[in-house]
Computed example of a mutant assay.
Amino acid sequence: MTVVIDTHTHAISPDKQRYPLAPVGGHQSEWSAQRPVSFEGLLTSMDEAGIDRAVVVQASTVYGNDNSYVVEAVRSHPGRFAGVFSVDVLASDAVTQMQRWLDAGLSGLRLFTTGSTMPGQAGWLDDERSFPVWEYAQRHHVSICLQMTAQGIPALLNMLAHFPEIRVLLDHLARPDLAGGPPYEAAAPLFSLASHQGVYLKLTNRTIAEAARGASTPAAFFPRVLDAFGAHRIAWGSNFPAAEGTLPQLLTDARESLSMLPADAREAIFGRTASTIYPALAA
């Protein structure tokens, strides 16, 4: 039976004293205030959806760089969860902080350069102060997932030139503009990354919605992405509970939107690729 892995979930503790709010940028996200889900609730939703394992990604718009609740989730259910942490990559002790969270059992790093509370694209992605973190990640095979927009792709290309062996995962496919439809000229920056074998794509509900906007259709866009990157570099993530809807519905929607792809490609996107990005999921 095919293993289903969700590469993008968030967990919010009901205990604000033990896990105080410290959102990046000073603003808590609306979704985390309106529909928070604890890791216990996340497990229940995973069981309802038939999802075997999930990556709990640090909720930067709730806890900033304090990844303690992600650590608790992974330690409580190591067979079901892997964890992705955030650090201030421009800080002088960034590598030390990175080692701290890896030693605590987390598996990957997330850089938050845009989001609902931080519109636009932050300019620090290729800041030289972050080079020690990228060098450490490259040397120790730690994947970096990037919450970014297509405007950040030139900076990412700069980092890929410096760190050619790095493995990066683009949240929401770096939010390409697909409304113009085929041949997707506005998404050219995304496709320019296809030749970089260390660039992986995280395909989420946001991607699915964008693929159905304007002149675009999922049937036109997703085979094009598959052809450019290969299923072995594409992984599904629900974005639950930041995404509205139940986890079973989000998985159903994703499966329907990718139904035109070959079965072996869908098996990779909904499971196998995730274990390449985060080997802890395969343990």
Rank of each mutant, 00 (worst) to 15 (best):
Q147C: 15
R167I: 11
S257L: 00
F39S: 02
E244F: 02
P154C: 11
E256Q: 14
L178Q: 08
Y200F: 13
Y19P: 00
G237P: 09
V168K: 12
P183Q: 13
L160C: 11
P36D: 07
A274P: 01
A104E: 04
Q197M: 03
L90M: 14
P154L: 08
T2G: 00
G230Q: 06
A186Q: 13
T149G: 14
G26V: 04
T276V: 12
A155Q: 15
A187T: 05
T273R: 06
F81N: 00
A215Y: 03
S86C: 03
L170M: 08
L173A: 15
S257K: 11
F39E: 02
R110T: 03
S60V: 14
V225Y: 04
L169N: 14
S195I: 01
S259T: 07
L125W: 05
P164Y: 05
G181R: 06
T2A: 06
H172K: 05
E40K: 12
Q97N: 07
A94L: 02
A242R: 14
F191H: 08
T204M: 05
V56L: 02
L193D: 08
Q147H: 15
F191P: 10
T2Q: 10
L146R: 12
I12Y: 11
R35S: 15
I12L: 06
L250A: 13
F81M: 02
L160N: 10
Y69L: 01
H232Q: 12
G181C: 07
V199Q: 00
S38D: 05
S68C: 07
D103R: 02
A220S: 15
P132S: 12
Q28S: 06
D66C: 08
A280M: 10
I234S: 10
A49L: 03
G79P: 05
H10W: 01
P218R: 07
E256R: 14
Y200G: 08
N205I: 05
A274K: 08
V55Q: 04
V84Q: 06
Q249E: 14
S130W: 09
I277K: 04
R206G: 14
P23G: 03
F229E: 01
A243R: 03
K16N: 11
D52V: 00
L226I: 09
D177N: 13
